[in-house]
Design a protein around this nucleic acid. Structure first.
Lengths: 166, 166
DNA sequence: CAGTATCCTCGCAGATACTG
DNA sequence: CAGTATCTGCGAGGATACTG
């Protein structure tokens, strides 16, 4: 009986998508990057906005630095203070986040307050109706759940990463 | 002493990106979707091309069906045969995969055979040099690792999901 | 404030045997 | 061929105490 193997690594698959996922696929990773686009720089920024455990955040940041997505920059005028800043490689992830948000806008929430109808592409048959509601069952619109872009984000970035006005 | 909590769920975060990751964030999920774009339809198609365990694949497919990304279509002319087909919602994920692939092309591999230089965005300082090599240390180009698009993929899809010719 | 060090626990995933 | 059932285990991630 063979021992169960550890998780398969995608790094040696012959596919750019798999490669990207190997770097970005962890649960928190893309959210950390998102927060960076929203202006988070310091350890505490990420910690507060994500509500992530310190050790996990530490590991994620190290991982992202290791892969050249963040630069750990010494800004220690007074002592040892660091900031995590997006590199060019990191900033190149903006389109990935943008398309994720767009997909979510269109398909996880409705664009306005109408539910999302999931259809089979060929037959056109309705497969599911998706509607996000509040605790009382009243439908929520995408605007009710607006992402808050931090003060550090540029106007252009904020526009890209916040939900489209219907 | 409090018991450690289970993994944080992103579903109730006020952010479309988090919502999308809640659906797509599992390790295999986007690769399964990718294979669907490449023409995979049957259980065995995914199993073979991904080398994924049966039960895991089963769970992933069920998850994707549940979220309306795949439709489980009965094509049982002879008996009980099913196919998993992308719905409209599923097909809308193509831009997500495309931007992931583009990012990988540009930043994980070099575009051609030149290594990727990771720079700090502001200072311009070089942080890392990335180069994919074979077992003997010889640099590989992105073309050496070409993704194979299956026969089921349309020409347009294949073009979008395969590496750019340098 | 910015982490590091521990401990703990479930969730994901691998292997495999089994069913129609 | 298309799964389901079961067992197993790594490891990501949560909580918390501690350090400069």
């Amino acid at each position: 009986m063979m021992a169960p193997m550890s998780r398969t690594r995608f790094a040696d698959m012959n596919c750019g998508i798999a490669q990207a996922l190997e770097v970005l696929g962890d649960w928190w990773t893309l959210l950390v990057v998102r927060d960076a686009f929203f202006g988070a720089r310091r350890f505490g920024d990420f910690e507060k906005s994500l509500g992530i455990a310190k050790n996990v955040l530490s590991a994620r940041l190290a991982h992202l630095v290791e892969h050249g997505i963040f630069a750990k920059v010494d800004v220690g005028a007074d002592g040892e203070r660091f900031e995590y800043r997006l590199t060019e490689k990191g900033e190149a992830l903006l389109p990935v986040l943008t398309t994720l948000r767009e997909w979510s806008d269109d398909w996880v929430f409705g664009r306005g307050n109408e539910p999302v109808i999931v259809k089979d592409r060929r037959t056109g048959r309705r497969l599911a109706k998706l509607q996000v509601t509040d605790a009382d069952g009243r439908p929520l619109t995408r605007r009710d759940l607006r992402t808050e872009a931090g003060p550090g984000a540029s106007a252009a970035t904020r526009r890209l990463l916040t939900p489209r006005p219907r």
